[in-house]
Amino acid sequence: MMPRMDRSDGLFLYRQMLLIRRFEEKSAEMYALAKIAGFLHLYIGEEAIAVGTIAALRSDDYVISAYRDHGHCLARGSDPGHVMAEMFGKTTGLCHGKGGSMHLVDAPRRFMGGYAIVGGHIPLATGLAFATKYQALDLVTVCFFGEGAIPSGQAHEALNLAALWKLPVIFVCENNRYGMGTPAERAIALYADVAETARSYGITAERVDGMDVLAVRDVMRKVVAQVRAGQGPLFIEAMTYRFMGHSMSDPAHGHYRTKEEVEEYRKRDPLLLLKQTILSSNLGTEADFTQLEREVGEVMTTAVKFADESPFPAPSELYNEVLAE
C-alpha cells in the first residue's frame, strides 16, 4: 500500500489548506474594507475536503461546485491573484469580473464553476460525466455541494440519472451540518445518514471525516480509481463544519448555534490536525510551518496587490460574452 504521506506530500497538503485559510481571511478583511461586495461565503473549517479530494484527481478531470467555491478553485491551482481580482470585480479576474465570488470559473484547470442555485449544478455534473463517457475518455467529474442540496429535486434527478447510466461522477456532499441556519436534522429526513439518499438509487456511498485531509484523500483515491475504471457514480459524505457564519452578513455562531459548539469543532481544525500528524511523525518541524506561513503570506500580499491595482472593466464590456459569435 502507498504510504499515507511523506514529507513533501504532507507539507504540500498543509500548504494548500493554509493558502485557502489565509485567502479566506484576507477576503473577509477585504469585505470589511468594501473591496469585495455582494455575497461572500467562506470555506474556513472545510479546507480538508477540497484539498484532499482534488489531490486525488488528474489535472484533466472535471470539478464543479456550489457558491462556497473559493477553496475548490484554489485547490485546483487557480492563481490567487486572479481569484481575488474576480472578487474585487476587476477585469483581470478569472471571469473578467462578470462572475464574482460565487461564480468562479477556471476552464483551463477544468474548474467548471461555482453555482448559486442550491442543487442546480448537480445535473451539470452528470452532463460533464456524460460527455466524457460519450467520448470514451477516462475522466472523472467531481461535484461538490452542501448537505442543504440533498432535499432538492434536482439532486435526486441527478443521482437517478448518474446511477441509471453509470456515469463517471463523484458526488461529494460537504455536510457542515447547516444550510444557512437550518440544521440538517430539521431539513433532511435521513439526516443521520445523508449518504443513504444515494444508496437508495443504488449508488455506493460512504462517509468520511472531512476534517482529516489524509482520510479524505485516501477515500478519494480509492473512489476515483473505481469511477475511472467505469464502475459508475459514487457518493461521499464528508463530515465537516464551517467555523464562520453562512456568509458575511451572518456572525460566526448567530442564534441558530452556540459559541460553545463552534469552539468544540474548532478543536478539530483540519490544519491543526494535519500539523499535529506531521509533527508527531517527524515529517516536519515548527520551522517548516513558519516557512509555509511566510510563503503563503507573500502569495496573499501579491494577490491582494494585484487585485487592488487591476482596473475595473470598462462599461463597454457590458454586452460582451452574452452570446457566442
Binding site: P123, T126, G127, A131, E157, A158, L161
Partner: peptide, 10 residues
C-alpha cells in the same frame, strides 16, 4: 430538470 441540466453540462 435532470436531463436538461445534463445536456447543459455535456
Amino acid at each position: 430538470a435532470g436531463f436538461t441540466g445534463l445536456a447543459i453540462g455535456a
